[in-house]
């Protein structure tokens, strides 16, 4: 066996073996070359769509309670973030503000924007309300904070949904910008790597029969 292996390498098979190892390793690491980013990996590892959102209680910026898996009767565009975020949230907030403006212009009332904070310890309901007012009190945009759940368990639930949240080595919160579309039956039916543009969102809603 050892002699055969020696002959194998004498014949110059080492480059092929090395290429095979790299190819196989990368394929395994990226779920078959489909998930090169953390966002894609977490999303691919979650259950396939359509699926129910995790069973979580929230309070919105007005102090009204709701359960994520019981959102019914309208479309919701859900993303995650936190108020002190300076990495990806400013762009997402800008995109949500643009979407909200379009919703108002088009008088489209069947969709509500929903942002869940990933840092409930800092982002209290009171603070969310102040920030919401700072955004110009957008009627079709809810900011919400989870209730009755530990931080780690909450992040695990978000991961199971397909959104990544983690503390880095400097203790800073990192998260992906994945956005989810919840249909009137309460199912997550579509997902976007970033906040979708108005055109992409319209196409998604058309696909949902709106």
């Amino acid at each position: 066996m050892v002699r055969q292996l020696g002959l194998f390498f004498k014949l110059g098979a080492a480059p092929l073996v090395a290429l095979g190892l790299i190819w196989g390793g990368l394929s395994w690491w990226t779920l078959g070359f489909k998930a090169f980013t953390t966002d894609e990996f977490v999303f691919q590892a979650a259950e396939p769509l359509p699926r129910l959102p995790p069973l979580l209680w929230f309070l919105d910026h007005q102090g009204r309670g709701f359960r994520l898996d019981q959102l019914r009767g309208r479309f919701y565009l859900l993303n995650i973030g936190f108020l002190a975020c300076s990495v990806s949230c400013p762009l997402a907030v800008e995109a949500y503000q643009g979407l909200h403006q379009k919703l108002q212009e088009q008088k489209e009332t069947s969709l509500t924007l929903l942002t869940l904070t990933v840092n409930p310890e800092q982002d209290s309901v009171k603070l969310l309300r102040l920030v919401w007012e700072g955004y110009g009190s957008p009627r079709q945009w809810l900011l919400a904070s989870p209730q009755d759940i530990g931080l780690e368990a909450y992040w695990e639930q978000l991961k199971a949904m397909g959104a990544w949240v983690e503390l880095d080595l400097q203790g800073q919160l990192r998260h992906t910008n994945r956005t989810f579309l919840i249909n009137p039956q309460g199912l997550i039916t579509q997902s976007f790597a970033e906040v979708p543009t108005w055109e992409v969102l319209q196409a998604a809603l058309r696909e949902e029969g709106l």
Binding site: A14, P15, V17, A18, L19, I22, G25, W29
Partner: peptide, 16 residues
Amino acid sequence: GNALGLLILGWGGVLF
């Protein structure tokens, strides 16, 4: 041949 294999593995480590 084997050195080339090692070289490819080295670049693979960077690529990862």
